[in-house]
């Protein structure tokens, strides 16, 4: 809807414009941010597990630096058998990885609990591995709405027996979410419009299995990180993830703990 509005706007009012303006934004207190979105590429050989946890502090909107958080204790507990995977900070400040390589490959039907202790407060969150389906193929189309756009379809076949929610990573920090409500059990071509792609550029698309709660979180996240202008915006909301502060329930951490089964596929752009 917004895209059409912008198009109409550009057709009607050649004088409409965007300006960068100076705004004094209010400054909130820094909050702990826990970025723990795991991807388990189970059909890669060997299984590829992206399970690093990034800790940082929120900053003023026009502040330059996001500060990494190093002095934290991080571990994950497999609730099913109470085994613990300890995380240690890697060479990259604020990025925590399991202390032993390959020590942690999440399994289906188990509940994992993330614990982060920082500044005398303890944060916990739980997650399960959410299944998904592989990408069948990546197709290129010849449609586009604006110039300099390349139409790409991520094709996948939904599982009929399951309520599926998908998170698609198109690279370049471009994400989308989808649910199978209107294509349950069908092969679906998810369209995406890349800007400024050239023939022979290579793109990689990942598909992640997510749950409904994370879909809602990611939807707002995507919208608020790249808002459209104009009168058809929804009021911005305070994004609350699934991380609790057990020491002080009022002082919450930002971010999310989520474990997704994932598949990826690469594609080389052709001349349309």
């Amino acid at each position: 809807m917004t895209k059409v509005f912008l198009l109409v706007l550009s057709m009607l009012c050649l004088l409409s414009c965007e300006d960068v303006v100076d705004i004094d934004t209010p400054e909130g207190t820094p909050q702990l941010v826990i970025d723990a979105s795991f991807r388990i590429y189970s059909d890669e050989q060997p299984i590829q597990v992206d399970n690093a946890i990034k800790l940082s502090l929120s900053a003023p909107f026009f502040g330059n630096n996001i500060l990494a958080v190093s002095n934290a204790t991080v571990y994950i507990t497999d609730v099913t058998n109470q085994s613990r995977i300890t995380y240690v900070e890697s060479d990259i400040a604020g990025t925590f990885i399991p202390d032993q390589a390959d020590a942690f490959i999440p399994q289906f039907n188990r509940t994992y609990e993330l614990t982060v202790s920082y500044d005398d407060e303890t944060y916990i969150a739980t997650a399960n591995l959410i299944p998904t389906v592989p990408l069948d193929e990546i197709k290129q189309g010849d449609g586009s709405f604006f110039d300099e756009e390349t139409e790409i379809f991520a094709v996948y076949t939904d599982v009929k027996e399951r309520e599926d929610y998908y998170f698609l990573d198109f690279g370049f920090n471009e994400y989308a979410v989808s649910e199978d409500r209107f294509y349950n059990g069908q092969t679906f071509d998810f369209p995406f419009y890349y800007e400024d792609l050239e023939p022979n550029d290579q793109i990689t698309i990942s598909i992640l299995g997510i749950d409904k709660q994370y879909l809602q979180y990611a939807e707002i996240l995507i919208e608020q990180s790249d808002p459209d202008g104009g009168p058809f915006q929804t009021p911005p909301v305070n994004l609350r993830g699934n991380i609790e502060n057990t020491t002080n329930s009022e002082q919450r951490a930002l971010g999310y703990f989520h474990i997704a089964q994932a598949y990826k596929l690469s594609y080389t752009v052709i001349t349309p």
């Binding site: 909050q31 909107f61 990180s225 911005p236």
Partner: peptide, 22 residues
């Protein structure tokens, strides 16, 4: 609404809106 801060999640810069609405 103006953001009261920002955070990074999955390499996205996300504005924080936790003040009074509008």
């Amino acid at each position: 609404n103006y953001p009261s801060g920002q955070f990074v999640y999955q390499d996205l810069i996300v504005p924080i809106y936790d003040g009074q609405r509008n």
